[in-house]
Each structure stands twice: as C-alpha cells, then as structure tokens.
C-alpha cells in the first residue's frame, strides 16, 4: 500500500475536540469541522446538527484538492487558507500540519481577523496532536500489536452488511 491507514484513538480524539471547542469559543464561530484530505470527517463541534457534515467534509476536501491542483499549475506548493464570504455565513478553510483540513463557519458576530488569529494558534496545537497520532500509529504497527478490529472478520460478517 502506498499510504498507511489513518487511525484515531480516544486520547487524541479528546485532545483534538478540546482544541476545536476552545477555538469555537475564542473565535466566536458557529461550527468547526476537522476533515481529512480524503474527505472523511474527523470531528465537528458547535451547531453541527444544522449542517450535512458528511457532504460538507467531502466537498471541502474536493475544494482543497482542486485549489491544490491549481496551486501546482502556477508553481505554488499549496494554498493553505481559503476564505469564502457569504451574505450571512463565512467559510474559513485551512490546512493543518499539511495533513488535515480545518473548517470554521462564522457570521458577523465574529470577523475574519479574529478567526485568522485564533485558527493560527489552534493549528499549532493540532499539528502537535496529529504528529503524535501518526507516531503512535506507526509504533503500534511496528510492535505488531494485533488490535485491529477486523482481524477476525468472517465472510458472513461481510455478507450481513448487505442483507
């Protein structure tokens, strides 16, 4: 396989949520999502019920992938921040640690300046957590801990999914 599996453990999940919840408060945002570059939702805080989070994750990743392609075409490495201004809500999208996508939705109770400032700080913390997560996953793989939940999966298990 070209890429290792992405994994998430309880400990880091809690740390991540702590950081984005703090960001939500400090940036006066409505909702915040973390998405992996393949479009899978990692976590979300705030008014998540009001949004179709799965679609949002997929489109965000598509958006980042497309602008990343554009960046390459003009000789840039990546556009690490995207900002979309709406009539009511605004979308601030940034890449954290080169690896995951942070999406902040905010309205006029906040401002772009504030969001930028707080995102920068939160990004540093998140980068640290994701670095640890990757190291942890690698270590677990090296030590060969057979904790993988699917190791004992049977054909019946798989068939049952589709029944």
């Amino acid at each position: 396989m070209a890429y290792p599996q992405m994994v998430m453990y309880d400990e880091e999940f809690k740390q991540i949520n702590f950081v984005i919840e703090k960001l939500l408060r400090e940036a006066n945002a409505k909702v915040i999502f973390l998405v992996d570059k393949n479009g899978q939702l990692i976590s979300g805080v705030g008014e998540t019920d009001r949004f179709d989070t799965t679609s949002l994750a997929s489109l965000t990743a598509g958006n980042i992938a497309a602008t990343g392609g554009l960046a390459k075409l003009i000789g840039e490495k990546e556009f690490s921040i995207l900002f979309h201004e709406g009539e009511k809500d605004n979308l601030h999208i940034s890449i954290v640690g080169g690896r995951v996508i942070l999406v902040v939705i905010f309205d006029n109770r906040s401002s772009l300046g504030l969001v930028r400032l707080r995102v920068k700080k939160a990004s540093e913390e998140l980068t640290g957590i994701f670095d640890r997560l990757v190291r942890k996953a690698e270590e677990k793989e090296r030590s060969g801990v057979p904790e993988f939940p699917f190791a004992e999966i049977t054909d019946d298990d798989i068939d049952n999914l589709f029944s």
Binding site: P4, Q5, M8
Partner: peptide
C-alpha cells in the same frame, strides 16, 4: 486510505 476511528468506533473506506 481507509480511516479507522477507534474513538467513535468507525471505519471509512473510499470506493
């Protein structure tokens, strides 16, 4: 690249 989330007990695969 599948994504295994032990925290929310989810596994995501892309087809």
């Amino acid at each position: 690249m599948s994504f295994i989330n032990y925290a929310s007990r989810e596994i995501n695969c892309k087809i």
